[in-house]
Design a protein around this nucleic acid. Sequence first.
DNA 1: CCAGGCCATTTCATAATGTAAAATGCGCGG
DNA 2: CCGCGCATTTTACATTATGAAATGGCCTGG
Lengths: 262, 262
Amino acid sequence: MTESTAKSSIQVLERMMKLMDALAGHVDPVNLKQLAVATGLHPSTAHRILSVMVENRLVDRIEPGTYRLGIRLLELGNLVKSRINVRQEALAFMEKLHKELHETVNLSVRQGDEIVYVERTLSNRSMMRVVHLIGARAPLHITAVGKLFLLEDGPESIREYAKRTGLPGFTRNSLNSLPKLLQELDRIRRQGYAFDNEEAEKGVSCIGAGIRDDEGHLVAGLSISAPSDRLNKAWATRIRETADEISHALGYRPPQAAARYR
Amino acid sequence: MTESTAKSSIQVLERMMKLMDALAGHVDPVNLKQLAVATGLHPSTAHRILSVMVENRLVDRIEPGTYRLGIRLLELGNLVKSRINVRQEALAFMEKLHKELHETVNLSVRQGDEIVYVERTLSNRSMMRVVHLIGARAPLHITAVGKLFLLEDGPESIREYAKRTGLPGFTRNSLNSLPKLLQELDRIRRQGYAFDNEEAEKGVSCIGAGIRDDEGHLVAGLSISAPSDRLNKAWATRIRETADEISHALGYRPPQAAARYR
DNA sequence: CCAGGCCATTTCATAATGTAAAATGCGCGG
DNA sequence: CCGCGCATTTTACATTATGAAATGGCCTGG
């Protein structure tokens, strides 16, 4: 063959993958010849491989010579999804970030009008009790991650949240009025990450970024919390990157121009 | 080989499929040896095939020797889902049913408090104008499919619906009181299909069954409508079967004992 | 109504391909 | 420190997948 076998590979499997890719790239059912051309395979070869895929329901043969990705993939996908656990997926990334920045890394999710901390990597060296026990709660509007969730809600719900909760303040930095909050959220939208500048607790600041699942829903937030004098705002990018990596691990793919229509 | 090759098949692909099945059957990550045993493959063979699957992200290798289904399956599944169109999937089944019963077959979806007809197979021989044009609407409580959607809502929402709409009657058979409606819905739950006994239009009756998607949500209804004297209640089973076939085509798998726990 | 082209599918002789035993290497527990 | 269990890599080998060509079905246009 003219092909260079990079590592180890199995020809048939590679070819099958090519066929899957080709099928993934076409929205409408594709016929055999198109697939053969698209993959560079001999029609008979493509046919043979496709037949096996059809038998195993990875591909549906709608009518002779007309193929598309099979519903079994939907089943398998749902299976994968049901097994994905945000906390578990995030853990490795959190530890990596922790090793890098040597500060407490938190994972939190929304629960009603509050943020709940579900995982953290302890700052095992710099012993200081930034009191974020797992299971601890805090109002949305005074935490970095909470603000991300508020932003996601949209203007109407934010207003309702403000009315419902009265935006209680905890320190003198707390955003205790709707205009201040809206302005802050707008900045967060542009930045892609959020700060908590001693709004929840005096002396403690926070940087947070959002984590999304395969459907694009904001499902959790990643944050670094530390004494304000130690917190470096330049870390924000790394936090966002890490959050994005976790999103990716959950199956999130940022909206692209590719294959958008139909 | 001792194996009987049923039709044509490709050994490696069959083995890959076995590995996928094995992985699909285990909730927690599986190690190589387990997989080799479960599939009856030589460990080195299993490893080689798995490596290819990992490269193509059908499988995630969490750490050496630890495998689970890959997120790419989630991506592909979402792709499949986004391409599935209830109307399109239903059409073939509707035509089959139509050939069998020679009556108008309707596909309808819910829109707020109404049912909208989105597809129909014309009773091309017995020309009679059962006036169900595509796009036509009808209140939920006087149509077979509408009742299925109400049932799905649960008691609380049904009550709200009754209060909101006042359960307007259209013929003398219309269920215009909440108790009557609840009783009817209870029968429907036990049957698995619904009737409309001249409740929307005098002289016209209907049998309907629900269609569910891969997540189990009721997304549409299949119904037969005909002049009451021609409508055979024994058809209900066939209608339900056909609706189930369509659900299946959408990826719905009825909850089973199989692989339920964890 | 037939001829001819197009395409999916099947066949089959051939050589390229995947196989599995054995070797290697790694990590863990006694 | 040794040995066991496991994943991984290597390699000689024969089974396996390959694709050119044949088949057959369907549609189109003369």
